[in-house]
Deep mutational scan, measured.
Amino acid sequence: MTVLPKDIPGDSLKVTVGTANGKPGDTVTVPVTFADVAKMKNVGTCNFYLGYDASLLEVVSVDAGPIVKNAAVNFSSSASNGTISFLFLDNTITDELITADGVFANIKFKLKSVTAKTTTPVTFKDGGAFGDGTMSKIASVTKTNGSVTIDP
């Protein structure tokens, strides 16, 4: 049996954390987006972790974005102690894959008090994996961190 590389060099799934701005007490939304989904033969499963400074940001909610089908079954998240974990699994293993680019999740943060303008990162942590529509590992994932700026 011969195994051929399935990824064209330079191609990767792009996962990007967005940015937001606000004043202390505001609730802002930071999107997590996927790009080049079709090039990577869709997404059938993924789990990953984001870190944030809990002294500056309070997670209000984490909701599935419009590219997630049947989110009540296929999407899960949790947030505590400065870490947000995400889990997606197409429970049907074929019919509810992520097949389009767009917003995977929206994180709502309540901004805490600061004395001066502060930009705090929302960054990928170690761990996690992504699988394509056949549940094979997506070897190349380009992750881009985001941030939230609090301006009193």
Rank of each mutant, 00 (worst) to 15 (best):
T2A: 13
V3D: 12
L4M: 11
L4S: 10
P5V: 06
P5T: 08
K6L: 13
I8E: 13
P9F: 12
G10I: 12
G10C: 12
S12A: 11
L13R: 08
L13K: 10
L13H: 10
K14Y: 14
V15D: 14
T16N: 09
T16L: 11
T16V: 11
T16C: 10
V17Q: 11
V17Y: 07
T19C: 11
A20H: 09
A20W: 06
N21D: 11
N21V: 13
G22S: 13
P24A: 10
D26Q: 11
D26R: 12
D26L: 13
T27A: 11
T27C: 13
V28A: 13
T29Q: 06
V30T: 10
V30Q: 14
P31I: 09
V32L: 09
V32E: 06
V32P: 01
T33A: 14
T33Y: 12
T33C: 09
F34A: 06
A35F: 13
A35V: 12
A35L: 09
A35P: 06
D36S: 11
D36I: 07
K41Q: 09
K41C: 07
G44P: 01
G44K: 00
T45N: 00
T45A: 06
C46P: 01
N47P: 00
N47Y: 01
F48H: 09
Y49S: 02
G51N: 14
G51T: 08
Y52D: 04
A54K: 08
S55D: 14
L56C: 10
L57D: 07
L57Y: 10
E58N: 08
E58D: 11
E58R: 11
V59N: 09
V59Y: 10
V59F: 11
V60L: 08
V60P: 06
V62L: 09
D63N: 14
D63R: 13
D63Y: 07
D63M: 13
D63A: 12
G65Y: 08
P66R: 12
P66A: 12
I67H: 14
V68Q: 11
K69H: 12
A71S: 11
A72D: 14
N74E: 00
S76H: 06
S77R: 15
S78A: 15
S80F: 12
S80Y: 06
G82N: 15
G82A: 15
G82F: 15
T83Q: 03
I84T: 05
S85E: 01
F86L: 05
F86E: 02
F86M: 02
L87N: 01
L87E: 02
F88S: 03
D90W: 04
N91E: 15
N91C: 15
I93L: 09
T94W: 01
E96R: 00
E96G: 03
L97E: 01
I98S: 03
I98H: 00
T99G: 07
D101F: 04
D101I: 03
G102P: 02
G102T: 03
G102E: 04
V103K: 03
N106F: 07
N106D: 05
N106M: 04
I107G: 00
I107F: 05
I107M: 11
K108P: 02
K110G: 02
K110H: 03
L111T: 05
L111V: 07
K112H: 04
K112Y: 03
K112G: 02
S113E: 03
V114N: 10
V114M: 09
V114D: 07
T115F: 07
T115H: 07
T115S: 07
A116Y: 04
K117G: 04
T118D: 06
T118L: 04
T118E: 03
T120M: 03
T120R: 14
V122I: 06
T123M: 14
F124W: 14
K125G: 01
K125T: 02
D126V: 15
D126P: 15
G128Y: 02
G128M: 00
A129I: 01
D132I: 01
D132L: 00
G133F: 06
T134V: 05
T134P: 01
T134C: 14
M135F: 05
S136Q: 02
K137N: 02
K137C: 01
I138M: 09
I138S: 03
A139M: 04
T142F: 04
K143F: 01
K143T: 02
K143R: 06
N145S: 07
N145Q: 04
V148Q: 04
V148Y: 05
V148R: 00
T149H: 15
T149C: 15
I150T: 14
I150Q: 15
D151W: 15
D151L: 15
P152L: 14
P152N: 07
P152M: 15
